[in-house]
Design a binder for these strands. Sequence first.
DNA 1: CAGTGGTCTAGACCACTTC
DNA 2: AAGTGGTCTAGACCACTGA
Lengths: 239, 239
Amino acid sequence: MFRYEEIAEDLQKKIKDGVYKTSEKLPKEYELCDQYETSRTTIREAMQLLENRGLIFKRRGSGSYVKSISEEEEVRKGFLQSSQFSGFTKDMGEQKVSSQIIEFAVVNPPREIAAALKMSVEDFAYYVCRIRLVDGEPFVVEYTYMPIQVISGVTKDTVQKSIYAHIENVLRLKIRSCHRIAKAMMPTEKETEWLAIDDGSVCILAIEQVAYLDDGRIFEYSVSHHRSDKFELKTITIR
Amino acid sequence: MFRYEEIAEDLQKKIKDGVYKTSEKLPKEYELCDQYETSRTTIREAMQLLENRGLIFKRRGSGSYVKSISEEEEVRKGFLQSSQFSGFTKDMGEQKVSSQIIEFAVVNPPREIAAALKMSVEDFAYYVCRIRLVDGEPFVVEYTYMPIQVISGVTKDTVQKSIYAHIENVLRLKIRSCHRIAKAMMPTEKETEWLAIDDGSVCILAIEQVAYLDDGRIFEYSVSHHRSDKFELKTITIR
DNA sequence: CAGTGGTCTAGACCACTTC
DNA sequence: AAGTGGTCTAGACCACTGA
């Protein structure tokens, strides 16, 4: 835990607790330097984190302010959210996540997927197709490819539980970034069945993802087909 | 144009031109300091920009490298992309964008929308419902609310062309950030007609957006319903 | 014009990778 | 052990806001 992270956490807590209220000015940077007994750079790094999280905004010549966010945006009932990519299991927090494995194999990846994974079609990759359930209800079908040269030791048990936990806790690899593309589409016949879709108003929010490790290696190409009535993707963009 | 922006542009160009190739090491930070005759902080700010754009990654103790991206991800045919939020017109670049106005009025916003805009239900907002066409083909239906106390002087002509151009060039306001939520859904009957959907495999990628100005004021709440076969949303996340 | 955040400098020391 | 990026300091000057 670095100093700037500590400060960011502390400020975030104060915003959440209403010490600094919506649209209200935060102390100026030099004041925070005094408060936390640190340099301006460190304060600015902390503030940068908060700005990226969409909690504050800054105005040159004026000050830093708490961003006004509607409560509606904060908590949206009935939807699972993904603003990070920590893996589905982690995203879900307290709710119970289980998996139903449709297929688990080692294969030569199709050409396009091999290209996305920057691997040869002659090398092998794990292929996992599984349904993820939260509190027993199906939410998403995931189709995942992982090069065995990068990710090893995946068992049926791993796939049943959490692949991300295996990568981080067993293999001790560090997940760094991911590139995602969100699309809408209709479910296939199989998906309609797997996701228990019995309502014509439900379709699919598809997220195609390429994920990278700490050392730049691509470890995963996946496509997740979510029930449109139970999942949404949240993003914050700052120019 | 600041020094660190110049350097970022230059490095980006060199990556694009293949001076630094995929998975290849970039010069070390101190070398770049010499090359550009600047301090390490400035170099690091430039690199930060490139990392956020998903072009490079860095490893403590090792070096900085060009991220390997599949060409597939770079250019995706047939899809319009939105990785920024510069407004639809700007996003589309060279292609011809036109609008068909369905409704243009000044209204008291519904309760939820007033809450999202942080305004009173008794104050007024522009309401615009329009179809956006690229090269004559409908892509998206936009439903937009803008408080008249923030955005003024919007005419039918503005709505016909580009609201964002009006905000930036006429009102001289600066757009700073936006919070988005992507969902999938089925088109309404009207939308099916407006978007000329004659194919049961097409549905809607909906993007709900709250957009902020430079000074923290919320200037827009909008929902965009895109044809699922012509639009996708791209995001890059770094932990 | 005073006050604020934005850019930039020139350094120090640390954590991690690589050999 | 040497080399790299990550954190942090103490300061300077600039661009912009707001009274």
